[in-house]
Each structure stands twice: as structure tokens, then as C-alpha cells.
């Protein structure tokens, strides 16, 4: 009992600590300050970009993992979840050696097109996608695998092509689970710090997302801005939780 209470204290007390230091009177002006506003807008852009990457690349992978048998599937399924447990800083360094200017693929891309991810918003998106995509893939794969396949069979006998079946039968059937996975993935991308700062850098307007600015502000004594931005991220997280409560908190 006491230990359980300890757990609650460990989770709730920091929240209270955060809320009691927020400077409510200057909240709006803190948030509309130029660099805070830029970071928030960039965060929205980066997190949505990461979500788009996850949907475009992650969904097909989730489908293949769920519906096709091939050698190495179990290994691939394990690999996909690696970023969920990998320290983000390590992820950032790994990204650097893959997509950095001197990286395995980054060098080729730079030589061919002059494009670089580092110090570029696309780099921040890539870093956020790296850490957040597994949340979408795992949720989507589970729902593709566990859904009732009898509707798809019926659709096939009615003359529906695989693409038509996917669009009109499979997708609607897994939509709630997919939305939950997407929300979770987006929330994770929004909070991404370690991989972003290691891989993409900390350039205001390009790669300095909200968590990066919070860190910088707290280090440099701009406590009010840091707290205001933290409050925004906290509210977004709570919003996602409330949105997912039926799926994650077991409410009927």
C-alpha cells in the first residue's frame, strides 16, 4: 500500500511541481514570444511530418509483417520495435552515421542532390519518425493481424480487388486502432529530444523543436518560457490520453 502510494507520488508530485511554478499571468506573452512561437510551430510541423512518414512507410510494413510469411519475419518484427527501447541519443548517433553528410546513405544523397538532413527540418522529422514510427507499426500490425478476416473474404467473393478491399473493408475495420496508434506515435514525435539534438542539431527555426527550446531556456535561466512550453506539451499529452482513454484505460 505504502509502496503503491509512493508510485503515485512519484508520478503526480512532479506534475504539481510544474504547475505551481507556472507563471500564469505572463503565460500568453511567454508563449507568443518569438522563439517560443517559432519552436511550437516547428514542433507541430515536425511531429506531423514524422506522422506522415510513419503512415506512408510504416503502414505498408505493418501490413507485410501482419499478412505475409517470409524468412526473417520474426527478426524484422523485433528490429522494428528497437527504437522504442533504444536510448534516443544512440538513435541520433546511428542516424548520423546513416543519413548524416558523411553517413552511409547521407553521403550518396548529398553527392547526388546536394540535400542534407543535418541542420534541416527534414532531419528533425527523420529523427522524430525514427523514434515514433514503431508505435504506429506495432499498433497497426496487431490490428491487421487480429481483425476478423471474414469480411475481407466476403469482399473478395464480391469481386473486390485487394486495393479496393483494403480501402473499403480493412481500413474501416482497423480505423479506431489505427487512430490510436497514430495519436500515440504523434505524441512521441512531439516530445522527441535526444535523437533530434544529436542528429539534426539545435538550430532555431529549422531543428529547434519545443523540447529543445525548453532545455535551452531552463539552462539559460528563461524559466517562465520553459514552464509555459512545458505546460503546452503536458496539456497535449493529457489530450492524447483522454482521446485514447477507451482503448488504454479499459473504460467500457
Amino acid at each position: 500500500m505504502a509502496f503503491a502510494a509512493g508510485a503515485v507520488v512519484m508520478i503526480v508530485l512532479p506534475l504539481i511541481g510544474l504547475l505551481q511554478r507556472v507563471s500564469w499571468s505572463t503565460l500568453l506573452s511567454d508563449l507568443s514570444a518569438h522563439d517560443a512561437f517559432v519552436a511550437l510551430r516547428l514542433s507541430l510541423e515536425v511531429s506531423l511530418g514524422a506522422l506522415a512518414i510513419a503512415l506512408v512507410f510504416g503502414l505498408p510494413l505493418a501490413w507485410i509483417l501482419a499478412r505475409h510469411r517470409f524468412p526473417g519475419r520474426a527478426l524484422l518484427r523485433g528490429l522494428v520495435t528497437l527504437p522504442m527501447v533504444l536510448p534516443p541519443v544512440v538513435g541520433g548517433i546511428a542516424l548520423l552515421y546513416a543519413f548524416g553528410r558523411r553517413g552511409l546513405a547521407g553521403q550518396v544523397i548529398y553527392d547526388l542532390t546536394g540535400w542534407r538532413f543535418v541542420f534541416n527540418t527534414s532531419g528533425a522529422m527523420l529523427a522524430a519518425a525514427f523514434v515514433s514510427m514503431p508505435f504506429l507499426i506495432v499498433t497497426a500490425e496487431a490490428s491487421f493481424r487480429s481483425m476478423d478476416r471474414r469480411g475481407e473474404e466476403a469482399a473478395a467473393t464480391l469481386g473486390a480487388s485487394p486495393a479496393y478491399r483494403f480501402r473499403r473493408v480493412t481500413l474501416p475495420a482497423v480505423a479506431p486502432a489505427l487512430a490510436a496508434g497514430a495519436a500515440l506515435s504523434w505524441a512521441r514525435a512531439l516530445g522527441e529530444f535526444g535523437a533530434t539534438i544529436t542528429f539534426a542539431g539545435n538550430l532555431p527555426g529549422s531543428t529547434q523543436t519545443t523540447p529543445l527550446l525548453i532545455y535551452l531556456d531552463i539552462e539559460s535561466g528563461h524559466e517562465a518560457t520553459a514552464l509555459a512550453l512545458s505546460l503546452v506539451l503536458l496539456l497535449v499529452s493529457l489530450g492524447v490520453l483522454v482521446g485514447l482513454r477507451d482503448r488504454w484505460l479499459g473504460n467500457p
Partner: peptide, 9 residues
């Protein structure tokens, strides 16, 4: 089929 297998949505 034995069950109607209608599309719920």
C-alpha cells in the same frame, strides 16, 4: 456464407 458477413460500417 453461414454468417451474413455484412460490412458493419
Amino acid at each position: 456464407f453461414q454468417e451474413p458477413r455484412l460490412f458493419d460500417h
